[in-house]
């Protein structure tokens, strides 16, 4: 009987035990989808973007930040990109000095998941104009914000307060025709902010595909 076999047995047993517990913790960790109240401080995050840089909410302090949960395979996201609606909104807002962050919370192997190179290529393909594309394959950021659908939009004011969350517009449909006459909640909220008013419609029910979490 060698020492190594002994150690192997022991190590194996300990690993199994730790594994069972760890797995349990992980599985449990996956369940919770938080929600942030409109008017509350937006949760801090620290996430890699598609260029490999770590982005935090703190670095954008003093600027308005828009978060856009996205999944390029989702028909609702396609409606907004194939019609150039989303890109136009991105260009209009970033031109005003607003920070636009796309967030991809699809888990590896799920629809919409992209690695850094894939995310950069997708921005090219879509001719999109976000400030950055955040990669959240663990879903930690998505869960902290309670992101439920793609698209799901959040607006954070320069003080870091969440001032809008919900749908991108009032047409909960994947049909391209629904874009005609759609009222953009995001544009309306930004107009309120620009005018120094309270955001009139500060919370709506998001629509789209479910976020493909781990």
């Amino acid at each position: 009987m060698s020492i190594s076999r002994r150690n192997l047995l022991l190590g194996g047993a300990a690993l199994a035990a730790v594994g069972v517990l760890g797995g349990t913790l992980l599985l449990n960790g996956n369940e919770a989808l938080a929600s942030v109240e409109t008017g509350a401080q937006a949760p801090a995050f620290s996430v890699q973007d598609a260029s490999g840089a770590t982005r935090t909410l703190a670095e954008f302090s003093g600027r308005t930040v828009i978060l856009e949960w996205t999944n390029h395979g989702c028909p609702y996201v396609r409606k907004h990109y194939d019609s150039d609606t989303m890109q136009t909104l991105q260009r209009d807002t970033t031109a005003d000095g607003i920070v636009w962050l796309q967030v991809i919370s699809s888990a590896p192997g799920e629809q919409g998941h992209l690695d850094a190179a894939g995310a950069r290529a997708r921005v090219q393909t879509d001719n999109a104009a976000p400030t950055a594309t955040l990669l959240d394959p663990s879903g930690a950021m998505g869960r902290a914000y309670g992101a439920r659908t793609t698209p799901h939009m959040y607006i954070i004011n320069p003080q870091g307060v969440l001032v809008y969350q919900g749908a991108i517009d009032d047409q909960p449909s994947a049909r391209p025709a629904s874009l005609q006459g759609a009222n953009s909640y995001v544009r309306a909220a930004l107009a309120d902010l620009a005018a120094g008013r309270l955001v009139q419609t500060a919370e709506t029910v998001p629509y789209g595909c479910g976020v493909k979490y781990v």
Binding site: M1, R6, N7, L9, L10, A13, A14, A17, V18, L21
Partner: peptide, 18 residues
């Protein structure tokens, strides 16, 4: 089956952490 020895204590100690 491993033979008894100091490893048993070590094993117990390690198992405390789970």
């Amino acid at each position: 089956i491993p033979k008894p020895g100091a490893w048993m204590d070590r094993a117990k100690h390690v198992l405390a952490f789970p």
